[in-house]
Simulated scan of single mutants.
Amino acid sequence: MPWKVLIADDDPNVREIVRLYFRQQLIELIEAPDGVSALAMLAELKPDIVILDVMMPGLDGFETCREITKRYDVPVIMLTAKNDEFDRVLGLELGADDYMTKPFSPRELVARIKAIFRRMQKGQPSIEVDAPSHYEFDDLVIHVTRREVIANSTKIDLRPKEFELLAFFAKSPGSVFKREQLLEQVWGYDFLGDMRTVDVHIKKLREKLSHCHNVCIHTVWGVGYKFEVEACT
């Protein structure tokens, strides 16, 4: 079965370029001219990943992303014509897994999609086969095989990339990782993404783990991040 990708973009030229390149890569493409159509197609056709243009008439990419992340557990890549950090950060904070700035290379887009599919594997855990089935840090339990996180006996809802980031940190408490390493190990590509992608996901993960008193993700200035246990002062 080929991968199934939904793209929502009101520019037919962009959709045609993507369609032709995807055809060479044996990726099935579903095309939507706007956000409303994309939501309808998402419910009916159940794509594996969604690509959203930010600037669309009616329901724009941000609102479409907000609706998708509320209803579905599917990776989202945002496309923006603006080289504006605010747009990029907003898309990530709404739940997008990645973003690209127009004009973009179809080859790079496919590389990012392939990276997401490699990590996602249809909902299977994106870790080594011989890794533990769970990690337990007092009031925080990470169930790897079930992709669940329990904090203070309460289940925490994490986006796929947030879970994979936390599971990666949990393998090596106290170790410091550069942003480049996190992009490569968690996102699955070697510095194709923007460092801000990592920063925003770290911010969201910290917010969701804020009531866990014995674990935290520290910033190591000038280097990167580290996951620490019982060092959260």
Rank of each mutant, 00 (worst) to 15 (best):
V141R: 15
R88Q: 14
M78W: 06
S175C: 06
K204M: 10
F177S: 06
P33I: 00
N214T: 12
A231N: 12
V14Y: 05
C216I: 01
R15E: 02
V176E: 12
G61D: 06
R19T: 10
V14Q: 12
V36Y: 07
R196L: 15
P12L: 03
V200Y: 05
E63R: 11
V110D: 03
F227P: 03
E44Y: 11
F168Q: 07
G224K: 06
V50M: 04
N13G: 07
A81M: 00
Q185G: 00
N83F: 00
L39K: 06
A231M: 10
F169R: 04
A115F: 09
A151I: 11
R107C: 01
D60P: 03
D60L: 05
S133R: 14
A167T: 10
D11Q: 13
R88E: 06
R71M: 03
K46Q: 12
S133M: 09
F62T: 01
T145S: 13
E164Y: 04
M120E: 10
R147L: 10
R23V: 06
T233N: 12
V18Y: 00
F22C: 05
Q181P: 03
L205W: 04
D190S: 13
G174K: 12
M100G: 08
N214M: 02
E85G: 00
W187C: 00
G58P: 11
I68V: 07
L45C: 02
N152T: 05
K155E: 13
E162V: 12
V36H: 03
S172R: 13
K70Y: 03
M120F: 14
M41V: 11
